[in-house]
Design a protein around this nucleic acid. Structure first.
Lengths: 144, 144
DNA sequence: TCTTCAACATGACTATGATCATATGAAGGA
DNA sequence: TCCTTCATATGATCATAGTCATGTTGAAGA
């Protein structure tokens, strides 16, 4: 689990290129699926100075087996993770920046204060310039 | 659970536009997260003639609580679902068709027989034309 | 106060995918 | 056999996001 910082979970494809599979922010568990398979060919790379907590897999699994409430909580966390990741992939399937922003705002998100807009651009997977331009278009449209 | 066909899980955003949150194919459970929340404001829409199995939420949850092996299997399914969905969102964050195809092939997928290429195009979230062109480029490159 | 740095902002140009139009070939049914 | 349909295929054009360049603003720190 990441307590602070920013960890990337990466896999090297057969062509040698690096692929990011997960970008874990504080509060997130890295590589949840690794608890359910014997081997897992990924690297965890700290994208920023980070603080993490670790727990042996066997301890984690036996705790889940012993406590069905804990197991249900864990399953709920995973289910919400599935939902969130599917939402992100659907957002990124929209070709236009305006549509991605609408969908993201429509899901209950709100524009962050200045200084954090680049985070939104990254979440939508567009360049910061494209997001700035879209926001400028909306400011202009709202004024008329 | 979808046995046959193709079900979309849709949410209507505050602007009234429809957003697909999940595209459930045979073998997949629809809206897993709904088992862990009291209300879930989505619609299930059959995108093709389909056959589904249903199970009351209470039965499902008590079965999980009673059988820790079943709970572990379910958690493993969810964890793999998280992984798969994250992979799709990372694929779709690549701006170029060639990169998306490389990443997808590098994850162990292989090109389907003719007649199924459009499915790949949809998985990569590009138009079929763009995929045909990329494949044509590769055929040409391989020949030289 | 002055310096520095990062985020915000915008213009110019380019690359590339989407769209529209058409054509070809294979499978299945009348 | 002929007709329909759908997947594959490719060309032409257009819209748009990426890229590069450049400038502005505001906050933190020396």
């Amino acid at each position: 689990m990441v307590n602070a910082g920013h960890i990337h979970l990466c896999r090297h494809t057969v062509h040698g290129t690096k692929m990011v599979l997960q970008r874990a922010m504080p509060g997130m568990v890295l590589a949840e699926a690794s608890a359910y398979s014997d081997s897992y060919h990924c690297d965890a790379i700290a994208a920023a100075d980070s603080i993490v907590q670790t727990l042996p897999k066997s301890v984690f699994l036996s705790a889940l087996a012993a406590d069905s409430d804990l197991a249900a909580t864990w399953a709920a966390t995973l289910a919400r993770g599935v939902q969130a990741a599917r939402f992100r992939s659907e957002i990124r399937s929209l070709p236009k920046v305006a549509d991605r922003l609408d969908a993201w705002l429509g899901a209950g998100n709100h524009l962050p204060p200045k200084g954090r807009w680049q985070d939104v651009a990254h979440e939508l997977s567009v360049t910061r310039e494209a997001l700035y331009r879209e926001l400028a278009r909306r400011r202009k449209g709202a004024k008329e």
